[in-house]
Nucleic acid binder design. Sequence first.
DNA 1: ACCGTGACCCTCG
DNA 2: ACGAGGGCCACGG
Length: 103
Amino acid sequence: MNEPGNFNQRVYHIVAAIPEGRVTTYGEVARLAGSPRAARQVGGVLRRLPEGSRLPWHRVVNRHGGISLQGEDFQRQRQALLSEGILFGPDSAIDLSRFGWKG
DNA sequence: ACCGTGACCCTCG
DNA sequence: ACGAGGGCCACGG
């Protein structure tokens, strides 16, 4: 079991399954992938997505419901989420109890 | 096979 | 309640 590159594949699969208009966290993806302590790695996978990937990477946020990207990438993710009807609170964070995958 | 890296998260003061 | 500090661990070079 657990062949090389499996983590990547699992992450792809899980992220691809996040419904439009919903978000989940790096930690949750890591848990679903079977490596609860590899939240950081999830970010690593998404960072190196092949250009032109159709994976909805923007639906993954940090545990506070905030965007972990910086500068231009921050704006791109924010825009993508807004265009799906996801709202940001006064603290610039998404209410996970409302827009989280499980809801 | 080792080593740096980091789109995170938990634990303590 | 909150911030700094450090552990974590799969990946690529």
